[in-house]
């Protein structure tokens, strides 16, 4: 019985590069947005503008969950047979 990952590897054996690059670029983009959110939330909290802190946390968590979900689509690469 095959799962999505195996089927994908069989159907598109030479697309792992593209997939991997896209995944990593999106993860880097997510992390960049999260850094900006944390920086803004911290700066505003120190200026006693605390209203931005929770929306920033929620946005950051959603970005993390998106990134975590992306890992499912990570190409597994060639299987090493012993």
């Amino acid at each position: 019985m095959s799962n999505f990952r195996e089927a994908q590897n069989q159907a598109h054996p030479n697309k792992t590069n593209t997939l991997m690059l896209a995944l990593i670029m999106i993860l880097i983009l997510n992390v960049s947005i999260q850094v900006w959110l944390l920086y803004t939330a911290l700066n505003n909290a120190l200026e006693k503008n605390t209203d931005i802190a929770f929306p920033s946390f929620i946005a950051s968590s959603i970005l993390f969950l998106i990134g975590f979900g992306w890992l499912y689509f990570l190409p597994s690469g060639p299987r090493v047979t012993k």
Binding site: L27, N30, Q34, L38, S60
Partner: peptide, 9 residues
Amino acid sequence: LCLVSGGLA
């Protein structure tokens, strides 16, 4: 990267 993302969250 996903771990870093979790840390930032």
